[in-house]
Design a protein around this nucleic acid. Structure first.
Length: 454
RNA sequence: GGCCACGUGGCGGAGUGGUGACGCAGCGGACUGCAAAUCCGCGUACCCCGGUUCAAUUCCGGGCGUGGCCUCCA
């Protein structure tokens, strides 16, 4: 079964061929840890978790290495720590712990390595020294800058040819830059800012620029060239473009990663998410009102490259669908992922197609097909769902609805008595009363069951 | 202004040069005391205008709309 992935660099879907099938390597840009991650940040985390699971299935769990970095040095972090009057390290550690809890609740496996920028300063400095030595970077006023004109084919990922960028430049340019598009690899730190001994004979302590950390960490943990590099589409320029420039020039390599994958943007209720619009949603906010599996499913209903509109209506629909999957396969023993689900995923992670296959399996369960519940359960668990028992799952609805269980069961007993006496008026009155409370009844030969209206 | 995406039925959302994925909602039927659940059936959708073609929602050009990026910000 060929896996095909859309590569941003070549702008086409290509069959995935790893450099080494025994060591498939993927790097994904992780969070800058200064505050709770928002729901837009959750998208790449979930999408690349699905890809990670798929790669582990195709190549074997021991033959895949997934690296997602933690950016714990950044001016936003410095500012926030100062604002809260706490040490930087406390802020980054606290934020990282929260992030880990959030993504675990979303059903994501932990990456194999979660490297921190501050633990890779030495590698960054090595890269910077190399770039300066080979003429791809220069020192100016205690900064080290990457020289964009030193790389003739700069701009291929974002399709921004150098000459057009010069024409379009309209921003104040720092006077020490030789060229408008040159970007910072290292910058001096004030005494109040975190700093490390600088490279290239610069006396003042300094700190790394935004892009160099990913070049350093992917190098350290995956090598000079690796298979997949992922992240949000907003990172294509300048972040990934500049990573490519740094890594390729430092290693004199034609490529940094063979496949560049980017997830599309997220909107909230049809609007751009922003603090000023008051629709800024953190993962934590979502998890307060919705099970993590619902959020995860909701994210996968849209193909990862499409823009997604995050809505309450969509979440409600997702919850309902998962209810049905739990009802059909909740406590069933696993029998592995179904071939159809895999087939859908190997076509550039076509998760909507995959969900259609899940619905097909569910229909097979209802029509009594042998092995269907196991196939559905196996597929859902493969994808990070069905992590609870059916009872636990049903309890989430009850917990979210403040229903008085003993009162409900008392009314059901009264109704059962009325039905036995064929007092349909009374029995329907009780059922209507329960419906008004949000409780739906199901009568069967074995008695009456109930659940929360959905 | 430049570059890059996206625009599919009431809603969500795949996909394809020629028989209307899938889900939600809705409608009809079976079942049921009546319902719910389940099962069966029901939809003449591809932003607009040109072009290519025997045939375009799908390819090409233009337009309109929405979004992203273009800044050591988020």
């Amino acid at each position: 079964m060929d896996l095909r992935l859309y590569d941003t660099l070549s702008r086409e879907k290509r069959v995935f061929t790893p450099l080494d099938p025994n060591n498939v390597r993927m790097y994904v840009c992780g969070p800058t840890v200064y505050d709770f991650a928002h729901i837009g940040n959750a998208r790449p985390v979930i999408v690349f978790d699905v890809l990670y699971r798929l790669l582990r299935h195709l190549y074997g769990a021991d033959h895949v290495k997934y690296v997602r970095n933690i950016t714990d040095v950044d001016d936003k972090i410095n500012a926030r720590a100062a604002e809260r009057n706490i040490p930087i390290r406390d802020l980054t550690e606290e934020t990282y712990r929260n992030f880990k809890e959030d993504v675990a609740a979303l059903g994501c496996l932990a990456p194999d390595v979660e490297p921190r920028a501050t633990e890779h300063i030495a590698e960054m400095k090595t890269l910077i020294e190399r770039l300066v030595a080979s003429g791809h970077a220069y020192v100016a006023e205690e900064h080290v800058l990457f020289s964009v004109p030193s790389m003739p084919d700069y701009g291929q990922l974002s399709k921004r040819p150098l000459d057009e960028m010069i024409a379009g430049a309209r921003v104040d340019v720092a006077p020490y830059k030789r060229h408008d598009q040159d970007f910072v690899l290292w910058k001096p730190s004030k005494e109040s800012e975190p700093g490390w001994p600088s490279p290239c004979g610069i006396a003042t302590p300094g700190r790394p620029g935004w892009h160099i950390e990913c070049s350093a960490m992917s190098w350290k943990h995956l090598g000079e060239t690796f298979d997949i590099h992922g992240g949000g589409i907003d990172l294509v320029f300048p972040h990934h473009e500049n990573e490519i420039a740094q890594s390729r020039c430092a290693f004199h390599a034609g490529v940094m990663a063979n496949y560049w994958l980017h997830n599309g943007f997220l909107q909230v209720e049809g609007e751009k998410m922003s603090k000023s619009l008051g629709n800024f949603v953190t993962i934590r906010d979502v998890l307060k009102d919705w099970p993590g599996e619902v959020a995860r499913f909701n994210m996968l209903r849209t193909h990862y490259r499409q823009p997604i509109d995050w809505t309450v209506k969509g979440l409600e629909e997702s919850w309902k669908t998962l209810d049905e999957f739990y009802a059909a396969a909740g406590d069933v023993a696993d029998k592995g992922v179904s071939g159809e689900v895999l087939w859908a995923l190997t076509d550039d992670l076509n998760t909507p197609q995959m969900i259609a296959e899940l619905h097909r399996l569910r229909a097979e369960v209802h029509s009594g097909a042998a092995g269907a519940p196991e196939a559905l359960a196996g597929s859902l668990r493969f994808l990070g769902f069905l992590r609870e028992t059916t009872a636990q799952w049903a309890g989430r609805r009850q917990a979210a609805s403040n229903i008085d269980v003993s009162k409900v069961e008392g009314l059901i007993q009264e109704r059962t008595a009325a039905r036995k006496a064929k007092n349909w008026t009374e029995s329907d009155r009780i059922r209507d009363a329960l419906a008004a409370m949000g409780v739906v009844l199901k009568d069967s030969k074995d008695g009456t069951t109930w659940e929360i209206a959905r």
